[in-house]
Write a protein that binds this DNA or RNA. Structure first.
Lengths: 100, 100
DNA sequence: TCAGGTACTAACAAAAAAGTTAGAAATGCG
DNA sequence: CGCATTTCTAACTTTTTTGTTAGTACCTGA
């Protein structure tokens, strides 16, 4: 359990992984738009950590202006079940989100 | 995903839920021994939040000295899949825990 | 020449989470 | 009486996390 906690904790990581799971490759700017509320600092910070933990791949194209894509790595894809279960957990408990 | 994040974030919650899943009912003191490293404040704090979110039941016996047991609620049991997947995630990546 | 676009970085500030320490309540037992 | 037991509170400090703001690099196209 400790491993999962260490790798997934962080306010935005699960969201980011969720979007990458749903969309495949996403550019930095696309993620910024999708993950509403996140600051640039946090987005990069979380992406760096996810990359360091081997859950995502960072693909940089040597262009100007720069283009960088992120995608789930093979290891990241092993999280698919968890991510799916987690978002369906939300579905089952929509009431809780609204009541509060 | 937001719901799962809001309900599961907290450095100790997944551990606590994991122990309750494995052991059924556990007393406050038993949890304190199992969740190594946790302070009393945090243990109570996390238990209260889990209870508030409806994931665990708190059963207090009117005795002296006091006896309080905690167990997964029905809603908490819907997390079983997730908890199991998360701990098996650790198994698959034991190397990461050791290398670091 | 110079603004425009993209993915960052760095320095600092604020807020949130976690840790520490001391202690309360109530009853049984020697 | 005085002490032990068990669950939990409260006040305070430290640590960690997150937010804010400003700015960089590089080429392109007007």
């Amino acid at each position: 359990m400790a491993y999962a906690i260490s790798v997934l904790s962080g306010r935005w990581k699960l969201s980011i992984l969720g979007f990458l799971l749903d969309n495949g490759k996403l550019r930095y700017g696309e993620l910024k738009r999708k993950v509403i509320g996140i600051s640039e600092k946090m987005l990069i910070n979380q992406l760096k950590e996810l990359e360091k933990d081997g859950l995502i791949n960072r693909i940089a194209y040597p262009e100007v202006p720069p283009r960088v894509e992120y995608e789930l790595s093979d290891k990241g894809k092993t999280l698919e079940n968890i991510l799916v279960l987690m978002s369906s957990l939300g579905e089952e408990n929509v009431d809780n989100r609204i009541k509060t």
